[in-house]
């Protein structure tokens, strides 16, 4: 129930940051996270709700590897 999008912090001014999302700059409140310039954050309704630990595309690929390992364990 929550549209959220990843973006990269390019500037910080106190509790707000400019976050870069595919050519858009969004003024984002970062009070809910501990983040620094260069971090990727997940943004929902103008606020960063988490610092991302991995690129989404990278994560999806590693999910398939995990599923492979699990299947090997099952058999």
């Amino acid at each position: 129930m929550c549209v959220a999008v990843p973006g990269k912090i390019v500037e910080i001014n106190g509790d707000t940051a400019k976050v870069y999302i595919l050519g858009n700059i969004c003024e984002t409140n970062i009070k809910l996270v501990s983040a620094k310039i260069g971090d990727y954050v997940l943004i929902h309704a103008g606020c960063a709700i988490e610092v991302l630990k991995k690129d989404m595309a990278e994560e999806i690929l590693s999910l398939f590897n995990d599923l492979e390992e699990e299947q090997n364990e099952d058999s």
Binding site: M1, C2, A4, L32, H44, C47
Partner: peptide, 8 residues
């Protein structure tokens, strides 16, 4: 909203 939005 749910918990995603409530902190905001």
């Amino acid at each position: 909203g749910f918990e995603t939005t409530i902190p905001i």
